[in-house]
Nucleic acid binder design. Structure first.
Ligand SMILES: [Mn+2]
Ligand SMILES: [Mn+2]
Ligand SMILES: [Zn+2]
Ligand SMILES: [Zn+2]
Lengths: 142, 142
DNA sequence: AAACTACATTATAATAATTCTAAACTATTG
DNA sequence: CAATAGTTTAGAATTATTATAATGTAGTTT
């Protein structure tokens, strides 16, 4: 997604009508310097706090899924009780903090390229992603 | 989990009362040669098909979570729309077939040991697991 | 072995997350 | 400025999961 952005054009490019609601959501999701992770709940809060107008919950779901389908968002399944989305849509690795339930992106350089030796006939590999579960190290307290 | 098994003893060992329902579920889950993956729905079907008596849905949930807490089952989050459990409770890697939504265990030898170069202060690594998403290779059709 | 107690099971209700519905609205096309 | 196809909306419906509270049972005590 671009930086300063003509979101209207970006939406048109993939065949999504640039409605008021979609443009607002683009602004919230893609105006930051860094990509980030959020839940639908987070996003609804962001919208109601930072926007004057309301967006129907159904539209938030619709729009998130429309963006996901168009490759503007990626769904991350880590915690079966919570569904995360990621504005970084490339295949990448994550740390998941089991204390805080925080998702942290892993830099390319933090993990060596992974070699899959098994070949499943008729199937191609779409992505290879690592999940590193972390938690506070209580061993370490002196 | 053992092979031929005194499930009663196994349950007692971890402080779970060996009730009729729990023993039945142990039989379904731990009498097979190979470990396997299932959803709550799968399990409910298995129970109603292979058992003469019924088990309340609440008990299925309670028992699965009791087993999970005691380390007899592991929850696998891969698809936010479905919650999988695994009778293989060790940390291990998976293939996920995006066509069939099938989870396949990855042998130890199929992926090299993963080296995490990033260190997050105050946090220890609990597990490192790889998810390889696969799908049918349509390129390959002649 | 009867009684006791703590824990477990059950049917059902409640909750939470997500999707559906159908009417009202709006961006785009001609 | 129609006409049209796609979109938003409030609210209903659906689904998965958890809570409730009455009943039942395993393990222990007498
Ligand atoms: Mn989705
Ligand atoms: Mn769980
Ligand atoms: Zn990420
Ligand atoms: Zn597995």
């Amino acid at each position: 997604m671009p930086k300063n952005c003509n979101f209207i054009e970006k939406l048109r490019e993939v065949g999504l009508r640039p409605t008021k609601q979609r443009i607002k959501m683009c602004e919230l999701l893609y105006s930051r310097e860094k990509t980030f992770h959020f839940t639908i709940n987070d996003l609804v809060k962001m919208i109601s706090e930072q926007m004057n107008e309301k967006i129907s919950l159904a539209t938030v779901y619709n729009t998130v899924h429309a963006f996901e389908k168009k490759g503007y968002l990626k769904e991350i399944s880590i915690d079966s009780h919570k569904s995360y989305f990621d504005t970084n849509t490339s295949a990448h690795h994550h740390f998941f903090d089991e204390d805080t339930h925080e998702l942290i992106d892993c830099e390319e350089s933090d993990i060596d390229k992974i070699n899959i030796r098994k070949n499943i006939t008729g199937k191609k590999i779409n992505s290879v992603e690592v999940l590193v579960r972390i938690a506070s190290d209580n061993q370490n307290q002196k």
